[in-house]
Design a protein around this nucleic acid. Structure first.
Lengths: 205, 205
DNA sequence: CCGGAAGTGAACTGGTCAGTTTATAATTAT
DNA sequence: ATAATTATAAACTGACCAGTTCACTTCCGG
Protein backbone atom coordinates (compact mmCIF):
# COMPACT_ATOMS: atom_id res chain seq x y z
CA UNK A 1 0.00 0.00 0.00
CA UNK A 2 2.41 2.75 -1.19
CA UNK A 3 -0.09 5.53 -0.68
CA UNK A 4 -3.74 6.40 -0.90
CA UNK A 5 -3.78 10.01 0.26
CA UNK A 6 -6.59 9.69 2.81
CA UNK A 7 -5.02 6.88 4.81
CA UNK A 8 -5.65 7.70 8.47
CA UNK A 9 -2.51 9.50 9.59
CA UNK A 10 -0.97 6.35 11.06
CA UNK A 11 -2.47 3.31 12.71
CA UNK A 12 -6.13 2.45 12.83
CA UNK A 13 -7.05 4.09 16.10
CA UNK A 14 -5.81 7.60 15.52
CA UNK A 15 -9.22 9.12 14.96
CA UNK A 16 -10.68 7.12 17.79
CA UNK A 17 -8.16 8.65 20.17
CA UNK A 18 -8.86 12.13 18.85
CA UNK A 19 -12.59 11.63 19.34
CA UNK A 20 -12.24 10.41 22.88
CA UNK A 21 -9.88 13.24 23.67
CA UNK A 22 -12.28 15.79 22.26
CA UNK A 23 -15.10 14.50 24.42
CA UNK A 24 -13.15 14.40 27.63
CA UNK A 25 -11.35 17.72 27.12
CA UNK A 26 -14.63 19.42 26.29
CA UNK A 27 -16.24 17.97 29.39
CA UNK A 28 -13.43 18.50 31.90
CA UNK A 29 -11.05 21.11 30.56
CA UNK A 30 -7.34 20.54 30.11
CA UNK A 31 -6.02 20.00 33.61
CA UNK A 32 -9.31 18.45 34.61
CA UNK A 33 -9.10 15.75 31.99
CA UNK A 34 -7.08 12.70 32.98
CA UNK A 35 -5.28 10.70 30.34
CA UNK A 36 -6.76 7.53 31.79
CA UNK A 37 -10.23 8.94 31.21
CA UNK A 38 -9.35 9.85 27.66
CA UNK A 39 -8.01 6.39 26.92
CA UNK A 40 -11.14 4.86 28.42
CA UNK A 41 -13.45 7.19 26.45
CA UNK A 42 -11.53 6.41 23.28
CA UNK A 43 -11.74 2.68 23.91
CA UNK A 44 -8.00 2.42 23.62
CA UNK A 45 -5.16 1.56 25.95
CA UNK A 46 -3.04 4.28 27.43
CA UNK A 47 0.02 2.81 25.75
CA UNK A 48 -1.66 3.13 22.36
CA UNK A 49 -2.60 6.70 23.06
CA UNK A 50 1.00 7.51 23.91
CA UNK A 51 2.18 5.82 20.72
CA UNK A 52 0.25 8.42 18.73
CA UNK A 53 0.88 11.52 20.79
CA UNK A 54 4.02 12.44 22.70
CA UNK A 55 2.11 13.97 25.59
CA UNK A 56 -1.17 15.37 26.81
CA UNK A 57 -0.48 18.84 25.47
CA UNK A 58 0.17 17.78 21.94
CA UNK A 59 -2.94 15.68 22.02
CA UNK A 60 -4.94 18.67 23.11
CA UNK A 61 -3.38 20.91 20.49
CA UNK A 62 -4.36 18.45 17.81
CA UNK A 63 -7.94 18.30 19.05
CA UNK A 64 -8.19 22.07 19.19
CA UNK A 65 -6.62 22.68 15.80
CA UNK A 66 -8.87 20.15 14.09
CA UNK A 67 -12.06 21.45 15.55
CA UNK A 68 -11.24 25.12 15.00
CA UNK A 69 -10.47 24.62 11.33
CA UNK A 70 -13.59 22.57 10.82
CA UNK A 71 -15.83 25.16 12.43
CA UNK A 72 -14.16 28.12 10.74
CA UNK A 73 -14.51 26.57 7.28
CA UNK A 74 -18.15 25.80 7.88
CA UNK A 75 -18.87 29.35 8.96
CA UNK A 76 -17.07 30.94 6.03
CA UNK A 77 -18.86 28.79 3.46
CA UNK A 78 -22.26 29.81 4.67
CA UNK A 79 -22.02 33.53 3.95
CA UNK A 80 -23.30 35.15 0.76
CA UNK A 81 -20.78 37.91 0.17
CA UNK A 82 -22.73 39.68 -2.58
CA UNK A 83 -25.74 40.67 -0.52
CA UNK A 84 -26.12 44.29 0.74
CA UNK A 85 -23.57 45.29 3.39
CA UNK A 86 -26.11 45.33 6.20
CA UNK A 87 -27.13 41.80 5.36
CA UNK A 88 -23.59 40.50 5.11
CA UNK A 89 -22.63 42.06 8.41
CA UNK A 90 -25.70 40.57 10.07
CA UNK A 91 -24.76 37.14 8.77
CA UNK A 92 -21.18 37.45 9.91
CA UNK A 93 -22.24 38.69 13.32
CA UNK A 94 -24.65 35.80 13.63
CA UNK A 95 -21.94 33.29 12.80
CA UNK A 96 -19.54 34.81 15.27
CA UNK A 97 -22.08 34.81 18.03
CA UNK A 98 -23.02 31.24 17.28
CA UNK A 99 -19.42 30.18 17.56
CA UNK A 100 -18.71 32.18 20.69
CA UNK A 101 -21.75 30.82 22.47
CA UNK A 102 -21.37 27.26 21.19
CA UNK A 103 -20.32 24.57 23.56
CA UNK A 104 -17.04 24.15 21.75
CA UNK A 105 -16.31 27.86 21.48
CA UNK A 106 -16.95 28.27 25.16
CA UNK A 107 -14.80 25.34 26.24
CA UNK A 108 -11.87 26.04 24.00
CA UNK A 109 -11.80 29.66 25.05
CA UNK A 110 -11.89 28.72 28.70
CA UNK A 111 -9.06 26.26 28.29
CA UNK A 112 -6.90 28.56 26.19
CA UNK A 113 -7.25 31.37 28.64
CA UNK A 114 -6.82 29.29 31.74
CA UNK A 115 -3.80 27.32 30.59
CA UNK A 116 -1.99 29.81 28.43
CA UNK A 117 0.55 30.62 31.12
CA UNK A 118 1.77 27.12 31.65
CA UNK A 119 1.14 26.36 27.98
CA UNK A 120 1.87 29.35 25.77
CA UNK A 121 1.86 27.81 22.27
CA UNK A 122 -1.80 27.10 22.83
CA UNK A 123 -2.89 30.72 23.12
CA UNK A 124 -0.89 31.73 20.08
CA UNK A 125 -2.17 28.81 18.00
CA UNK A 126 -5.74 29.64 18.88
CA UNK A 127 -5.31 33.35 18.23
CA UNK A 128 -3.97 32.64 14.78
CA UNK A 129 -6.68 30.21 13.79
CA UNK A 130 -9.41 32.27 15.47
CA UNK A 131 -9.40 36.04 15.97
CA UNK A 132 -6.69 36.61 13.38
CA UNK A 133 -8.48 34.69 10.65
CA UNK A 134 -11.68 36.54 11.39
CA UNK A 135 -9.91 39.85 11.15
CA UNK A 136 -8.32 38.99 7.82
CA UNK A 137 -11.62 37.82 6.39
CA UNK A 138 -13.34 40.97 7.54
CA UNK A 139 -10.64 43.24 6.15
CA UNK A 140 -10.87 41.49 2.80
CA UNK A 141 -14.60 42.04 2.78
CA UNK A 142 -14.20 45.69 3.78
CA UNK A 143 -11.88 46.22 0.82
CA UNK A 144 -14.57 45.06 -1.59
CA UNK A 145 -17.27 47.13 0.07
CA UNK A 146 -15.07 50.21 0.12
CA UNK A 147 -14.30 49.77 -3.57
CA UNK A 148 -18.04 49.70 -4.22
CA UNK A 149 -18.42 52.89 -2.19
CA UNK A 150 -20.56 51.22 0.47
CA UNK A 151 -18.20 51.78 3.36
CA UNK A 152 -15.58 54.37 4.31
CA UNK A 153 -12.89 53.13 6.71
CA UNK A 154 -9.49 54.56 7.55
CA UNK A 155 -8.16 51.89 9.91
CA UNK A 156 -9.57 48.65 8.57
CA UNK A 157 -7.90 46.39 11.10
CA UNK A 158 -9.31 48.41 13.94
CA UNK A 159 -12.74 48.40 12.34
CA UNK A 160 -12.60 44.62 12.05
CA UNK A 161 -11.56 44.20 15.67
CA UNK A 162 -14.27 46.61 16.76
CA UNK A 163 -16.93 44.71 14.91
CA UNK A 164 -15.73 41.50 16.43
CA UNK A 165 -15.89 42.94 19.92
CA UNK A 166 -19.32 44.49 19.35
CA UNK A 167 -20.67 41.03 18.65
CA UNK A 168 -19.73 39.96 22.15
CA UNK A 169 -21.59 42.71 23.99
CA UNK A 170 -23.55 41.42 26.98
CA UNK A 171 -23.45 37.78 25.87
CA UNK A 172 -19.76 37.19 26.25
CA UNK A 173 -19.28 38.32 29.85
CA UNK A 174 -22.39 36.50 30.93
CA UNK A 175 -21.15 33.35 29.32
CA UNK A 176 -17.56 33.53 30.31
CA UNK A 177 -18.36 34.13 33.96
CA UNK A 178 -20.87 31.31 34.00
CA UNK A 179 -24.06 33.28 34.50
CA UNK A 180 -25.74 31.86 31.41
CA UNK A 181 -24.76 29.16 29.02
CA UNK A 182 -27.49 29.53 26.47
CA UNK A 183 -29.13 32.53 24.86
CA UNK A 184 -32.45 33.09 23.16
CA UNK A 185 -32.79 34.08 19.53
CA UNK A 186 -34.02 37.47 20.75
CA UNK A 187 -30.99 38.08 22.94
CA UNK A 188 -28.71 37.30 20.02
CA UNK A 189 -30.68 39.47 17.60
CA UNK A 190 -30.46 42.41 19.93
CA UNK A 191 -26.70 42.19 19.93
CA UNK A 192 -26.39 41.51 16.19
CA UNK A 193 -28.56 44.47 15.29
CA UNK A 194 -26.83 46.65 17.85
CA UNK A 195 -23.46 45.78 16.37
CA UNK A 196 -24.51 46.37 12.77
CA UNK A 197 -26.28 49.64 13.53
CA UNK A 198 -23.28 50.94 15.37
CA UNK A 199 -20.88 49.83 12.71
CA UNK A 200 -22.92 51.41 9.92
CA UNK A 201 -23.36 54.65 11.85
CA UNK A 202 -19.60 54.96 12.00
CA UNK A 203 -18.40 53.48 8.73
CA UNK A 204 -21.43 53.57 6.42
CA UNK A 205 -21.58 56.06 3.55
CA UNK B 1 -10.99 44.66 74.25
CA UNK B 2 -14.77 44.69 73.56
CA UNK B 3 -14.41 46.33 70.17
CA UNK B 4 -12.44 48.89 68.17
CA UNK B 5 -14.02 48.66 64.74
CA UNK B 6 -10.82 48.28 62.73
CA UNK B 7 -9.41 45.31 64.61
CA UNK B 8 -8.03 42.95 61.98
CA UNK B 9 -10.84 40.51 61.31
CA UNK B 10 -9.52 37.93 63.74
CA UNK B 11 -6.01 37.04 64.86
CA UNK B 12 -2.90 39.01 64.16
CA UNK B 13 -1.83 37.33 60.96
CA UNK B 14 -4.96 37.65 58.88
CA UNK B 15 -3.67 40.39 56.62
CA UNK B 16 -0.32 38.72 56.36
CA UNK B 17 -1.98 35.59 54.99
CA UNK B 18 -4.04 37.61 52.54
CA UNK B 19 -0.94 39.40 51.29
CA UNK B 20 0.99 36.22 50.74
CA UNK B 21 -1.97 34.64 49.02
CA UNK B 22 -2.34 37.60 46.71
CA UNK B 23 1.28 37.41 45.65
CA UNK B 24 1.29 33.69 44.98
CA UNK B 25 -2.11 33.55 43.27
CA UNK B 26 -1.15 36.44 41.03
CA UNK B 27 2.11 34.74 40.12
CA UNK B 28 0.89 31.19 39.63
CA UNK B 29 -2.88 31.22 39.08
CA UNK B 30 -5.33 29.27 41.19
CA UNK B 31 -4.48 25.63 40.50
CA UNK B 32 -0.86 26.57 39.98
CA UNK B 33 -0.52 28.08 43.45
CA UNK B 34 0.26 25.62 46.22
CA UNK B 35 -0.93 26.26 49.72
CA UNK B 36 2.55 25.50 51.03
CA UNK B 37 3.92 28.27 48.83
CA UNK B 38 1.29 30.66 50.09
CA UNK B 39 2.06 29.86 53.70
CA UNK B 40 5.75 30.35 53.04
CA UNK B 41 5.19 33.65 51.20
CA UNK B 42 2.98 34.84 54.04
CA UNK B 43 5.56 33.88 56.65
CA UNK B 44 2.98 31.78 58.44
CA UNK B 45 2.46 28.12 59.12
CA UNK B 46 0.03 26.13 57.06
CA UNK B 47 -1.96 25.34 60.18
CA UNK B 48 -2.37 29.04 60.88
CA UNK B 49 -3.51 29.66 57.36
CA UNK B 50 -6.14 26.97 57.70
CA UNK B 51 -7.31 28.44 60.97
CA UNK B 52 -8.29 31.61 59.09
CA UNK B 53 -9.69 30.14 55.91
CA UNK B 54 -11.63 26.91 55.50
CA UNK B 55 -10.00 26.06 52.20
CA UNK B 56 -8.01 27.30 49.25
CA UNK B 57 -11.09 28.49 47.36
CA UNK B 58 -12.37 30.71 50.10
CA UNK B 59 -8.93 32.16 50.52
CA UNK B 60 -8.82 32.99 46.85
CA UNK B 61 -12.30 34.50 46.87
CA UNK B 62 -11.27 36.79 49.69
CA UNK B 63 -8.17 37.92 47.84
CA UNK B 64 -10.11 38.56 44.65
CA UNK B 65 -12.96 40.41 46.31
CA UNK B 66 -10.61 42.70 48.23
CA UNK B 67 -8.51 43.63 45.27
CA UNK B 68 -11.43 44.16 42.90
CA UNK B 69 -13.19 46.55 45.23
CA UNK B 70 -10.01 48.47 45.88
CA UNK B 71 -9.25 48.91 42.19
CA UNK B 72 -12.82 49.74 41.20
CA UNK B 73 -13.09 52.46 43.84
CA UNK B 74 -9.82 54.00 42.75
CA UNK B 75 -10.90 54.11 39.11
CA UNK B 76 -14.29 55.64 39.84
CA UNK B 77 -12.81 58.41 41.98
CA UNK B 78 -10.50 59.60 39.26
CA UNK B 79 -13.10 60.63 36.69
CA UNK B 80 -14.40 64.16 36.28
CA UNK B 81 -18.02 63.60 35.33
CA UNK B 82 -18.78 67.22 34.35
CA UNK B 83 -16.38 67.47 31.40
CA UNK B 84 -17.72 67.25 27.82
CA UNK B 85 -19.03 63.81 26.84
CA UNK B 86 -16.12 63.02 24.54
CA UNK B 87 -13.69 63.76 27.33
CA UNK B 88 -15.55 61.71 29.91
CA UNK B 89 -15.81 58.76 27.58
CA UNK B 90 -12.11 58.98 26.80
CA UNK B 91 -11.30 58.95 30.51
CA UNK B 92 -13.56 56.00 31.19
CA UNK B 93 -12.15 54.07 28.25
CA UNK B 94 -8.64 54.80 29.46
CA UNK B 95 -9.46 53.49 32.93
CA UNK B 96 -11.04 50.36 31.57
CA UNK B 97 -8.11 49.63 29.33
CA UNK B 98 -5.69 50.23 32.14
CA UNK B 99 -7.51 47.75 34.31
CA UNK B 100 -7.90 45.15 31.61
CA UNK B 101 -4.25 45.30 30.68
CA UNK B 102 -2.97 45.54 34.25
CA UNK B 103 -1.20 42.63 35.79
CA UNK B 104 -4.01 42.11 38.26
CA UNK B 105 -6.77 42.46 35.68
CA UNK B 106 -5.07 39.95 33.48
CA UNK B 107 -4.45 37.40 36.20
CA UNK B 108 -7.84 37.58 37.81
CA UNK B 109 -9.56 37.26 34.47
CA UNK B 110 -7.48 34.27 33.54
CA UNK B 111 -8.22 32.57 36.82
CA UNK B 112 -11.95 33.34 36.80
CA UNK B 113 -12.34 32.02 33.29
CA UNK B 114 -10.18 28.98 33.72
CA UNK B 115 -11.64 27.82 37.01
CA UNK B 116 -15.23 28.89 36.74
CA UNK B 117 -16.42 25.38 35.90
CA UNK B 118 -15.04 23.70 38.94
CA UNK B 119 -15.63 26.85 40.93
CA UNK B 120 -18.79 28.67 39.83
CA UNK B 121 -19.30 31.21 42.63
CA UNK B 122 -16.07 32.78 41.50
CA UNK B 123 -17.28 33.78 38.05
CA UNK B 124 -20.50 35.21 39.40
CA UNK B 125 -18.73 37.13 42.14
CA UNK B 126 -16.33 38.65 39.66
CA UNK B 127 -19.06 39.51 37.16
CA UNK B 128 -20.98 41.36 39.79
CA UNK B 129 -18.06 43.35 41.11
CA UNK B 130 -16.65 43.93 37.61
CA UNK B 131 -18.64 44.12 34.36
CA UNK B 132 -21.93 44.70 36.14
CA UNK B 133 -20.64 47.62 38.17
CA UNK B 134 -19.15 49.17 35.09
CA UNK B 135 -22.43 48.84 33.24
CA UNK B 136 -24.39 50.45 36.05
CA UNK B 137 -21.95 53.34 36.30
CA UNK B 138 -22.11 53.90 32.57
CA UNK B 139 -25.88 53.79 32.45
CA UNK B 140 -26.06 56.32 35.27
CA UNK B 141 -23.75 58.60 33.34
CA UNK B 142 -25.75 58.14 30.13
CA UNK B 143 -28.88 59.22 31.94
CA UNK B 144 -27.28 62.53 32.85
CA UNK B 145 -25.88 63.10 29.38
CA UNK B 146 -29.22 62.24 27.76
CA UNK B 147 -30.99 64.68 30.07
CA UNK B 148 -28.54 67.36 28.93
CA UNK B 149 -29.30 66.46 25.31
CA UNK B 150 -25.76 65.29 24.61
CA UNK B 151 -26.61 61.70 23.81
CA UNK B 152 -29.58 59.84 22.38
CA UNK B 153 -29.80 56.17 23.38
CA UNK B 154 -32.71 53.75 23.24
CA UNK B 155 -31.14 50.68 24.85
CA UNK B 156 -28.81 52.07 27.48
CA UNK B 157 -27.67 48.73 28.84
CA UNK B 158 -26.69 47.60 25.39
CA UNK B 159 -24.89 50.86 24.73
CA UNK B 160 -22.91 50.43 27.94
CA UNK B 161 -21.95 46.88 27.07
CA UNK B 162 -20.99 47.94 23.57
CA UNK B 163 -18.76 50.67 24.86
CA UNK B 164 -17.13 48.26 27.23
CA UNK B 165 -16.46 45.78 24.45
CA UNK B 166 -15.16 48.46 22.10
CA UNK B 167 -12.47 49.28 24.61
CA UNK B 168 -11.11 45.78 24.30
CA UNK B 169 -10.64 45.81 20.53
CA UNK B 170 -7.30 44.37 19.44
CA UNK B 171 -5.71 44.64 22.89
CA UNK B 172 -7.83 42.10 24.68
CA UNK B 173 -7.38 39.12 22.36
CA UNK B 174 -3.67 39.78 22.08
CA UNK B 175 -3.38 39.87 25.82
CA UNK B 176 -5.63 37.01 26.69
CA UNK B 177 -3.96 34.66 24.25
CA UNK B 178 -0.53 35.65 25.46
CA UNK B 179 0.80 37.42 22.39
CA UNK B 180 1.58 40.63 24.23
CA UNK B 181 1.49 41.56 27.86
CA UNK B 182 2.18 45.24 27.59
CA UNK B 183 0.96 47.94 25.27
CA UNK B 184 2.29 51.31 24.23
CA UNK B 185 0.49 54.55 24.91
CA UNK B 186 -0.11 54.82 21.16
CA UNK B 187 -1.74 51.40 20.93
CA UNK B 188 -4.05 52.29 23.77
CA UNK B 189 -4.91 55.70 22.32
CA UNK B 190 -5.81 54.16 18.99
CA UNK B 191 -8.36 51.94 20.70
CA UNK B 192 -9.69 54.63 23.04
CA UNK B 193 -10.24 57.08 20.19
CA UNK B 194 -11.68 54.37 18.00
CA UNK B 195 -14.17 53.46 20.71
CA UNK B 196 -15.23 57.03 21.43
CA UNK B 197 -15.55 57.96 17.74
CA UNK B 198 -17.70 54.93 17.10
CA UNK B 199 -19.83 55.51 20.14
CA UNK B 200 -20.42 59.16 19.30
CA UNK B 201 -21.20 58.37 15.66
CA UNK B 202 -23.98 56.11 16.85
CA UNK B 203 -25.29 57.80 19.99
CA UNK B 204 -24.12 61.44 19.72
CA UNK B 205 -26.60 64.18 18.93
C1' DC C 1 -0.78 -19.70 7.88
C1' DC C 2 2.91 -17.30 9.62
C1' DG C 3 5.50 -13.30 11.23
C1' DG C 4 5.72 -8.65 12.27
C1' DA C 5 3.18 -4.65 13.47
C1' DA C 6 -0.25 -2.71 16.32
C1' DG C 7 -2.77 -2.92 20.42
C1' DT C 8 -3.84 -4.34 25.40
C1' DG C 9 -4.06 -4.15 30.45
C1' DA C 10 -2.26 -3.66 34.55
C1' DA C 11 1.11 -2.61 37.45
C1' DC C 12 4.60 0.76 38.56
C1' DT C 13 7.47 5.20 39.14
C1' DG C 14 7.98 9.41 40.76
C1' DG C 15 5.86 13.29 41.66
C1' DT C 16 2.36 16.89 43.52
C1' DC C 17 -0.89 18.60 46.56
C1' DA C 18 -4.89 19.82 49.94
C1' DG C 19 -5.82 19.44 54.28
C1' DT C 20 -4.98 17.29 59.28
C1' DT C 21 -2.57 16.24 63.32
C1' DT C 22 0.52 16.59 67.15
C1' DA C 23 3.68 18.05 70.26
C1' DT C 24 5.77 22.34 71.30
C1' DA C 25 6.57 27.25 71.67
C1' DA C 26 5.39 32.22 71.73
C1' DT C 27 1.90 35.91 72.99
C1' DT C 28 -1.39 38.04 75.51
C1' DA C 29 -4.71 39.09 79.11
C1' DT C 30 -5.86 39.14 83.58
C1' DA D 1 2.91 34.86 86.97
C1' DT D 2 -0.27 31.92 85.04
C1' DA D 3 -3.70 30.27 82.06
C1' DA D 4 -5.70 30.63 77.73
C1' DT D 5 -5.18 31.79 73.20
C1' DT D 6 -2.65 31.73 69.01
C1' DA D 7 1.08 30.16 66.31
C1' DT D 8 4.77 26.84 64.62
C1' DA D 9 7.21 23.00 62.28
C1' DA D 10 7.12 18.85 60.45
C1' DA D 11 5.38 14.73 59.57
C1' DC D 12 1.46 12.39 57.75
C1' DT D 13 -2.91 10.84 55.09
C1' DG D 14 -5.13 9.92 51.21
C1' DA D 15 -5.77 11.01 46.82
C1' DC D 16 -4.62 11.95 42.03
C1' DC D 17 -2.05 11.79 37.81
C1' DA D 18 1.39 11.81 33.67
C1' DG D 19 4.01 8.89 31.54
C1' DT D 20 6.61 4.11 31.23
C1' DT D 21 7.20 -0.72 31.05
C1' DC D 22 6.25 -5.43 30.03
C1' DA D 23 4.34 -9.74 29.16
C1' DC D 24 0.75 -10.93 26.35
C1' DT D 25 -2.85 -10.88 22.50
C1' DT D 26 -4.98 -9.52 18.17
C1' DC D 27 -4.82 -8.24 13.49
C1' DC D 28 -3.44 -8.17 8.74
C1' DG D 29 -0.58 -8.67 4.52
C1' DG D 30 2.07 -11.59 1.77
Amino acid sequence: MPDGVIEPKRGRKYDQVLDGARQVFMADGFEGASVDDIARAAGVSKATLYSYFPDKRMLFMEVAKNECCRQADEAIESIEMDAPVQQVLCDIAGQMIDFITSNFGQRIFRICVGESDRFPELGREFYESGPMMIRDQLVAYFDEAIARGELRIEDKMLAADQFHELCKADLFPRMVFNLSDEFTKAEKMRVVNGAVDMFMARYGT
